[in-house]
Computed example of a mutant assay.
Amino acid sequence: MKKSISVVIPCKNDGALLAEALESLAEQTVKADEIIVVNNASADDTKTIGEKFGAQVVNEDRIGVLRATATGFDLAKSDIILRLDADVVLKPDFIERVHQIWTNAAESSGKKVVGVTGSARFMLPGRKADLYSRLYLGAYRAAVRSTLGHQPLFGTNFSIPRCWWEQVRESIDFNNSLVHDDMHLSFAVRPDETVWLQKDLTLDTDPRPLHGIRQFINRFRRGFYTIFLNWKNSPPHRRLAERRSR
């Protein structure tokens, strides 16, 4: 039986980019069952744009992607919650592919799949797009996977079952706005669970993470902060040993 899908998009002052994302969602061969835009204290026309495309728009005035993401997840009613950023553009068969991948994941053997994470391609000219995308995402996956014992969720493009979110949400601290929400949530994956990496589930995304060395350093600093924070409750030696025992 095909599962229903809710799309959750946190957005803060990204109205123009959000319009492109919602337009690509409107052109899907298989439509999402609901689209939730979380307006995170935006000063632009995010709310108006979301409503124009028929999305459910909810306000989250506490600034922070983690809080906005949690608000959207709590409102989602579908079996699967698909988390996207506001600055992405989806291929027309994206939602259709997410349906098929979750069907494959449900039929797989081994650890229980509680997350499906895809990839992204920076919208850059020529070969830069593939090169920079591979380097950026490769560094993220390699660094975080070694501490998690499984693939990390990638905030621009991942999905989780709503029932799993309901099971783990009470164990997650939403009050720290300095953490990366995707990495923080990845630490909630339990020893008998895993994340399915689908590298060819790709969407296009704005290249602004690459703009300026200061922003690049800040993103990695927040990443290491998120890891060290979670190590307090889930140190790597204990986490990896628990996963091997299962």
Rank of each mutant, 00 (worst) to 15 (best):
W164T: 04
T156E: 09
L153N: 01
R141Y: 09
F122L: 01
A139Q: 14
D130C: 12
A188H: 04
D200T: 07
A129W: 09
L131K: 11
S186P: 15
T194V: 05
R134E: 13
Y136Q: 00
F154Y: 13
K128G: 11
L185G: 03
Y140G: 01
D200S: 06
A188M: 10
L137W: 10
L148N: 01
L201Y: 05
D181A: 07
H184Y: 10
R145T: 04
S159P: 00
L197F: 15
V195L: 11
R145M: 02
T194N: 00
G118L: 04
V144W: 04
G155T: 11
R169E: 02
S159Y: 08
D173G: 07
E166C: 10
W164H: 06
Q151A: 15
S159F: 07
D182T: 04
S159H: 03
T147A: 10
E193L: 04
L185F: 12
D200G: 01
S119T: 01
L137P: 04
P152Q: 10
S171L: 05
F174C: 14
D173P: 00
G118I: 05
S146Y: 15
V168M: 12
G126C: 12
G138S: 09
Q151Y: 14
P125V: 06
L197Y: 15
E170V: 06
L178A: 14
L124S: 09
K128P: 05
F154W: 09
F158K: 01
P152N: 08
L185Q: 08
R134Q: 11
Y132R: 13
D192I: 09
S186N: 13
P125D: 13
H180W: 07
I172G: 03
R121K: 12
G118D: 06
R145H: 03
K199T: 15
P191G: 08
R127S: 13
V179K: 06
F122K: 01
R121P: 00
M183T: 14
L135E: 15
N176Y: 08
H180Y: 04
A142Y: 05
P125H: 08
V168T: 02
R141K: 14
L137D: 10
Q167D: 06
